[in-house]
Design a protein around this nucleic acid. Structure first.
Lengths: 130, 130
DNA sequence: GTAACCAGTTTCCTTAAAGTAAGTGCTTTA
DNA sequence: TAAAGCACTTACTTTAAGGAAACTGGTTAC
């Protein structure tokens, strides 16, 4: 789902001299954009956090995130699943119950989340001038 | 410019028992969303990288980022300016020349960019199964 | 004097993301 | 037996982002 990277051809440089800057630039921007494709957007991180807090059932997650709709939640959970961050398990009860959990892989996002959180905290202070 | 956080009221939790989970959740998600407001989107990081590579002039930056248009570049530079990541300096030459540079503050984004870059690299491997 | 460069702005248009609202098929509870 | 819960899906509408192209008002180079 949207792994389009072909348009990421950032040139970034002074054609004559340092053509190393080209590759260089590419190497930063390409993975960053890959990462942002997965975690940016309004709902993905809220969902990951809600699930990490123990909300496993669809309605449960839905209730824990104000203003999210079932439509959006459904779609975002699918995205997170294809990115292998969330696991969907169907239990053969009557009626079937479905559980969402984070994969161990989701834990690799911790450093990203922490970096974003830290930066967000100080940025708010900076912008609001407090 | 879009510092709307009032809808970030993630509830996140089991009303009875641990109401600490509420505040907890909030404390993670709110700054993360603040950070994403600033750096997510298609163009902001490419622009930051282009400027960091020494492209200072409007047309220069425009040329260094394939497919960007003047309209979008103009808007994004303004955003980055209000977020204090980019500085716009007008020199009183004939005709006036304008220079964009990164602020020292932009350097605080390094850890975020590095975290995203790292994660993006291994994620691509994971998803493409290489 | 006309072509080209600079730093943008304006207008119009298309696409994509997100919101609204209702419905589906099943089951348990009052 | 009617209401409500579960896990969603479908159809329709609104909003936002982004692209294309032209244009402004100045300046310098040919």
């Amino acid at each position: 789902m949207q792994m389009k990277t072909e348009e990421l051809t950032i040139d970034c440089g002074r054609p004559e001299a340092e053509s190393s800057a080209h590759t260089d630039c590419h190497k930063v921007i390409m993975p960053v954009r890959d990462a942002l494709d997965v975690i940016s957007g309004k709902w993905k991180l809220p969902i990951i956090i809600a699930v990490s807090r123990g909300h496993k059932r669809f309605r449960d997650i839905e209730r824990s995130i104000p203003k999210i709709t079932s439509k959006v939640l459904s779609k975002e959970l699918k995205d997170l699943e294809t990115h292998k961050l969330v696991k969907r398990t169907v239990y053969d009860t009557q009626p079937v119950s479905v559980e969402y959990t984070l994969t161990p892989y989701a834990a690799t996002l911790d450093s990203v989340i922490i970096a974003l959180q830290k930066w967000g905290i100080q940025h708010r202070k900076k912008i609001l001038g407090k």
